[in-house]
């Protein structure tokens, strides 16, 4: 056994220690061997004086109060390959899960954004009737006649009806979205459970149980659910992106009721644009 082989062997047996400690110990032995060879001994002879590397490693571990019997012996070459392969797959799984997590996070942020925009729209609806009295009083000061009063009542009724319509529309939309969410929820839950069982099964598989089949089943289930949810969200997202063009024709059709309504309408339009 030459110096490098001895150091490698020793390191493989004290791998449980911190990297810095390992290097410290190995440096000391390396220096000892160097000084012995400088004194005229061969590397083999110097190493022979250390005795059995296994006992030596056991003594080193004892110095750290580590029970050498509990430290796993260094794996042979093929096993090392398998374990490194497993480590690599584990890394890949972790990345994959991270990506899924990112997708879920973006989904959540989309829902939050949608919720926020809905809230703003509702607030806009509630706010839009507010400027009406100010505009109306200005109108009334200019021409306090019964005709204007009648107009004011009509205007108020029309605006109230339109507001109600919008409110109903928003409510229907909210209900529809909640329904979609409710439909999506079981799939999301199934996907999460499948991912969870993939983890459990993978651990059991590594421990040696024959669970490749169930693992693949869970993988398929998870992918299926994620794909379905993804499809659903994509469709909703598309529809939401198309929504502004749906609202545009509403604007010009509004001022057709009467001329005096025009300033009020533009005001409410402004508010809704701000919202």
């Amino acid at each position: 056994m030459n110096k490098q082989e001895f150091l490698n062997e020793l390191q493989s047996r004290i791998r449980i220690l911190e990297e810095a400690e390992q290097q410290d110990i190995l440096a000391e032995y390396a220096q000892h061997i160097d000084l012995r060879t400088a004194g005229g001994l061969s590397e083999e002879e110097a190493i022979r004086d250390f005795g059995n590397p296994e006992e030596l490693a056991a003594e080193i571990l004892e110095a750290y109060h580590v029970d050498p019997a509990r430290v796993e012996t260094p794996p042979s070459q093929p096993l090392a390959g398998v374990s490194s392969g497993l480590k690599r797959t584990a890394g890949r799984c972790r990345r994959c899960l991270g990506r899924v997590g990112g997708g879920l996070r973006s989904l959540a942020s989309r829902i939050a954004a949608w919720w926020g925009s809905l809230g703003q729209r509702l607030r806009g609806l509630r706010r839009s009737p507010a400027p009406r009295p100010a505009a109306d009083t200005a109108d009334a000061e200019k021409a306090p006649s019964p005709v204007s009063r009648f107009r004011r009542i009509r205007t108020g009724a029309a605006l109230g009806l339109r507001g109600l319509g919008r409110l109903i529309k928003a409510l229907v939309r909210l209900a529809w979205n909640l329904l979609l969410l409710l439909i999506a929820l079981p799939f999301v839950v199934t996907a999460v459970l499948a991912i969870l069982s993939i983890g459990v099964l993978a651990v059991l598989l590594i421990q040696g149980y024959p669970l490749v089949g169930p693992l693949l089943c869970c993988l398929g289930l998870a992918l299926c659910c994620i794909a379905l949810v993804g499809l659903g969200t994509t469709l909703i997202w598309k529809r939401r992106n198309a929504a502004p063009s749906y609202e545009v024709p509403q604007g010009p059709s509004a001022p057709t009721t009467s001329q005096s309504l025009a300033p009020v309408e533009t005001h409410s339009e402004e508010v809704s644009i701000h919202a």
């Binding site: 000084l35 004086d49 250390f50 005795g51 030596l56 080193i60 004892e62 110095a63 750290y64």
Partner: peptide, 29 residues
């Protein structure tokens, strides 16, 4: 330093040189 110490101890008792380093480590810890 380690090697010097091993040589010093070896004067008194005939000891496996490898075992002194773990002892030093333990006493340091």
């Amino acid at each position: 330093y380690g090697y010097e110490l091993v040589a010093e101890v070896s004067k008194v008792v005939d000891v496996n040189e490898g075992t002194i380093y773990p002892l030093l480590k333990r006493l340091t810890n």
